[in-house]
Amino acid sequence: MTAFAALHRAGEPLLLPCAWDHASAFALAGQGFRAVGTTSLGVAAAAGMPDGASATREETLRLALTLGSGPFLLSVDAEDGFSDDPDEVAAFAREVAAVGAVGINLEDALGPTDRHAAKIAAVKSAVPGLFVNARTDTYWLGGGEGDGEGESRAAETMRRLDAYRAAGADGVFVPGLTDPARIAALVARLDVPLNILHSPTGPTLAHLADLGVRRVSLGSLLYRRALGAALETAADLVAGRVPRGSAPTYDEVRALGS
């Protein structure tokens, strides 16, 4: 078992914060996080590109190169692998592993199950030690939990996860799923770690731990909160108010680049 895989513990899930640049990743590591992910939204938005459109392959690889030698374990959000060709996805996985990444997140975007399974199998064949977190978007893009199709959606989710696990996925990710009963049911069916995306309106980290979840991702939350804080600060200054919240000093941020 790799050091990264060992962090996916029952009862003490891996809380994975997601960075978008060198400073955010190293600041998170400075707060004691042993592993850091990347956020595809943050990478895309910073480059002025759309998220989830397979447009940021080079930007993602560049960030992996920047962060791969950092004092933390790095997992890279690679959207759908930036290609429909499993061999091209495997080639990208080799590149991020070569610069120090220990994990990769691959989303199916509700495309064909067999195609996503082929990507997973190709990555595991090319880089056996890379932790593949296989994401299905049945709840993220499929209408959520309140659309009256709960049972059929749960069945489709399990069908996809079974295929991805059979293809060699080390863990599975179901963003958008927040119902405790359905989360517990998935955990009971799976023999690999279940990753859930943290939701401010969903179960707490402690509750997710009790349900058996072994990885909780923050996704784009920190990036969006950072943008929100910047806008609030600007609005406070325009209104003549003292800005709310806290901020690292100039020297503290400068030191992150050392």
Rank of each mutant, 00 (worst) to 15 (best):
M1K: 11
A3C: 04
F4D: 01
F4A: 02
A5T: 12
L7V: 07
H8M: 14
P17C: 06
P17S: 06
A23F: 12
F26A: 07
A27H: 08
A29W: 05
F33L: 07
A35F: 01
V36D: 01
S40A: 15
G42Q: 02
V43L: 13
A44H: 01
A45H: 13
A45W: 15
A46R: 06
A47L: 10
A47F: 10
G48A: 10
M49S: 12
M49Q: 15
M49P: 02
P50G: 05
D51K: 01
G52N: 12
A53V: 03
A55D: 10
T56A: 12
L63W: 05
A64C: 13
T66H: 06
L67S: 05
G70T: 09
P71H: 13
L73R: 04
L74M: 12
S75F: 02
S75N: 14
V76W: 00
D80I: 04
D80N: 15
G81K: 02
F82S: 01
S83G: 10
S83Y: 08
D84N: 13
D84G: 12
E88D: 14
A90E: 02
A93C: 11
V96I: 15
A97E: 05
A101L: 04
I104E: 00
I104M: 14
N105W: 02
L106N: 00
E107F: 02
L110N: 13
G111T: 10
T113F: 00
D114A: 14
A117R: 03
I120P: 00
S125C: 12
V127C: 14
P128Q: 09
P128L: 13
G129W: 06
L130K: 05
F131P: 01
V132C: 06
T136Q: 04
T136C: 10
D137W: 03
W140F: 14
G144A: 12
G144N: 06
G144F: 04
G146V: 08
G150R: 11
E151M: 08
S152W: 09
A155W: 09
M158I: 13
R160C: 08
R160F: 10
D162I: 04
Y164D: 00
A166P: 03
G168W: 09
D170I: 00
V172N: 00
F173W: 07
P175T: 06
P175Q: 07
P175A: 05
P180Q: 09
R182M: 11
A184S: 13
A184C: 07
A185P: 05
L186Q: 04
A188D: 15
A188G: 09
R189A: 15
L194P: 01
N195D: 06
I196G: 00
H198V: 03
P200G: 08
P200T: 10
T201A: 14
T201W: 10
P203Q: 08
H207M: 12
H207C: 09
L208Y: 01
A209V: 08
D210Y: 04
V213T: 05
S217I: 03
L218V: 08
S220I: 00
L222Q: 13
L222A: 14
Y223R: 04
R224T: 07
R224L: 13
L227P: 07
G228V: 06
E232Y: 03
E232Q: 14
T233A: 15
A234L: 14
D236L: 09
L237S: 09
V238E: 12
A239N: 11
G240N: 11
G240A: 11
V242A: 15
V242R: 14
G245L: 13
E252A: 15
E252S: 15
E252C: 08
E252K: 12
V253A: 11
G257Y: 14
